[in-house]
């Protein structure tokens, strides 16, 4: 049995005057344990909606997502999420942001503290444990957000363009760090991005979505060994191939 199973999921948004928008159309996908899957596609292809359905923040109009056989009915700490926007609670210090989920679970204070230290160390922010989010740079905030999600020890980590607002250099550094964390924790990661470069650098498998209605146009396995060399010829080949697929996905004939 696969870890996460997306079974014929569709999502229709009702607009005013009876108009409807089909955001996702008949999406099916099986995701293995510890797999790193990237979803790419142009804006409006429903990739964020799909992630939100898996998180339990939206409900599918039809179809079902199940985690280890159990259908998803609503948000649950088993599925951690890192948002595109800075979602840290500004009134909590870095450490208290990380322990938020543990507090909700009613974990004893001492255990919370030691968990916080573990994940602070993992993202390299030990000196900032008592800092407030406004004191952090964008990259640091997203690192805390990752630590906060991981502290809950989720089965799956959902990431919705988490590095989209960062500058190119920070973004590359964050991608490397994320891979290190992934190798260390062996989490299953579902990562939404519109950057092909990012997807090729990170993913075991890239799922290409076509826009309006959002459908899976193609999936490709990336077998390049890690760490991947962004400027290498193999990298460029995969990148070109994915870009070509994305272009053909846009054509009506393919849809």
């Amino acid at each position: 049995m696969s870890k996460l199973s997306i079974d014929r999921v569709s999502k229709v948004f009702a607009k005013k005057q009876g108009e409807v928008v089909v955001a996702l159309d008949d999406i099916s996908l099986e995701i293995e344990d510890s797999e790193f899957v990237c979803f790419v596609g142009p804006s409006g292809c429903g990739k964020t909606t799909l992630l939100r359905i898996i998180a339990g923040l939206e409900t599918a109009t039809s179809g079902e997502v199940s985690l280890m056989g159990a259908p998803i009915r609503g948000p649950d700490p088993k599925r951690g999420m890192v948002f595109q926007e800075y979602s840290l609670f500004p009134w909590r210090t870095v450490k208290n942001n990380i322990t938020f989920g543990l507090e909700m679970r009613g974990m004893p204070k001492a255990d919370q503290d030691s968990a916080a230290e573990t994940y602070l160390a993992m993202v390299g922010l030990e000196q900032f444990r008592e800092a407030y989010p406004y004191e952090l740079s964008g990259g640091m905030r997203q690192r805390v957000a990752i630590a906060r999600a991981l502290a809950n020890e989720p089965e799956v980590l959902l990431m919705d363009e988490p590095f989209g607002a960062l500058d190119a250099q920070t973004r590359n550094a964050m991608q490397r760090e994320l891979l290190e964390i992934w190798e260390k924790t062996q989490k299953t990661i579902l990562f939404v991005t519109h950057s092909v470069d990012e997807a090729v650098f990170l993913a075991d498998r890239i799922v290409i979505l076509s826009p309006r209605p959002g459908r899976i146009c193609d999936t490709i396995r990336v077998d390049l060994p890690r760490p991947r060399e962004r400027t290498g010829p193999e990298f460029a080949n995969v990148r070109r191939y994915v870009l070509g697929l994305m272009d053909s996905c846009r054509l009506p004939s393919k849809i």
Binding site: P75, F89, M104, A149, N152
Partner: peptide, 22 residues
């Protein structure tokens, strides 16, 4: 809404707790 959703995903789901903690 982002804060509320972030909290819900982290396991803070009942209205009472969302009001108190978020």
């Amino acid at each position: 809404r982002l804060f509320v959703e972030a909290a819900r995903v982290l396991g803070c789901t009942s209205p009472g707790r969302l009001i108190r903690h978020v």
